Amino acid sequence: MRPILYSFRRCPYAMRARLAIASVGLEVELREVVLRDKPQEMLAASPKGTVPVLITETGVMTGVIEESREIMDWALAQNDPEGLLDMPPEGEEWIAQIEGPFKVALDRYKYETRYEGVEPLAEREKAAAILRQVDEQLRERLWLYGDRPSFADLATITFVRQFAMVDRAWFEHEDWAGIQGWLARFLASERFAQIMLKYEKWQPGGDPVIFPAISLN
């Protein structure tokens, strides 16, 4: 039995989980979720009700991983053909910044009506200030730490995509060619196309969807 991945196509957490699984070359059964109508099978496995959720084993022995970072770690612990884990210590510091203060500011910028007393443009500037920390190095190299992606790239760039999509005209007008080029390379890549294929909402009893559907050359 393949592992089962409950996912939502546009969720940045689910996206980075799919990136790691695809990089490793694992095959999982992908179950696309509609967040307003979550399947009971997913909620039974993970009552918190957020994606991604990975069921690593089925039957009597069931393992459930409920956090995207842990899914990435699980996948890369089995195989790391691209050497994603070969990154300097500051890679973990960058991930912590994006998962922490950047994501906090992003949510308040993108979803201002969910928070009381929020100034969305001030929150946008907080997030932008974090991105500017790596703009210069990204003007000199293709990815954060060299000419190929590392774990730090794949663990964070889906959140940068979400940030850019809030006001694409503003993002593209900013003077940060390194950040813009980094995101553009990712969006034009085969790996992005691979994880963003569209699937119908999962229904019990339907034909299983095997992910990844295409191989990364």
Score class of each variant (00 low, 15 high):
Gly91Thr: 07
Glu123Trp: 09
Trp182Pro: 01
Arg114Pro: 04
Arg124Gln: 08
Tyr111Ile: 10
Ser189Met: 08
Met42Val: 03
Gly100Ala: 05
Arg161Ala: 06
Gly25Phe: 12
Leu106His: 01
Trp182Gln: 02
Arg124Lys: 13
Ala75Phe: 11
Glu136Asn: 12
Ile179Lys: 07
Ser7Lys: 13
Ile157Phe: 07
Thr62Cys: 09
Glu82Cys: 04
Phe8Asp: 01
Val104Met: 12
Glu90Phe: 07
Glu136His: 15
Met42Glu: 05
Leu187Gly: 02
Asp167Trp: 12
Ile130Leu: 13
Leu216Met: 11
Glu119Met: 11
Thr58Phe: 02
Val166Arg: 11
Leu26Ile: 11
Gly25Asp: 11
Gln194Tyr: 07
Asn79Ser: 11
Leu106Met: 10
Pro47Thr: 01
Glu112Pro: 07
Thr113Phe: 11
Thr58Val: 12
Arg148Asp: 04
Ala152Val: 05
Glu112Ala: 01
Asn79Pro: 00
Lys103Leu: 06
Tyr199Cys: 06
Pro120Asn: 12
Ser46Gly: 08
Phe159Val: 09
Met1Trp: 11
Ile130Cys: 03
Glu90Gln: 14
Phe211Arg: 09
Pro212Tyr: 03
Glu27Gly: 00
Leu85Phe: 13
Ile95Arg: 14
Ile55His: 05
Thr62Ile: 10
Trp182Gly: 09
His173Gly: 08
Ala22Cys: 08
Lys126Glu: 01
Arg141Ser: 08
Ala188Thr: 12
Gln203Pro: 00
Met72Asp: 08
Gly100His: 10
Glu190Gly: 04
Leu154Trp: 02
Met72Gly: 01
Tyr115Asp: 03
Pro3Ser: 07
Pro208Ser: 02
Glu57Gly: 15
Phe186His: 03
Leu197Cys: 12
Val166Trp: 07
Ala44Val: 00
Ser215His: 12
Leu5Ile: 02
Tyr6Phe: 15
Pro208Asp: 04
Pro89Asn: 10
Phe8Trp: 15
Thr56Arg: 13
Phe192Leu: 13
Pro12Ala: 06
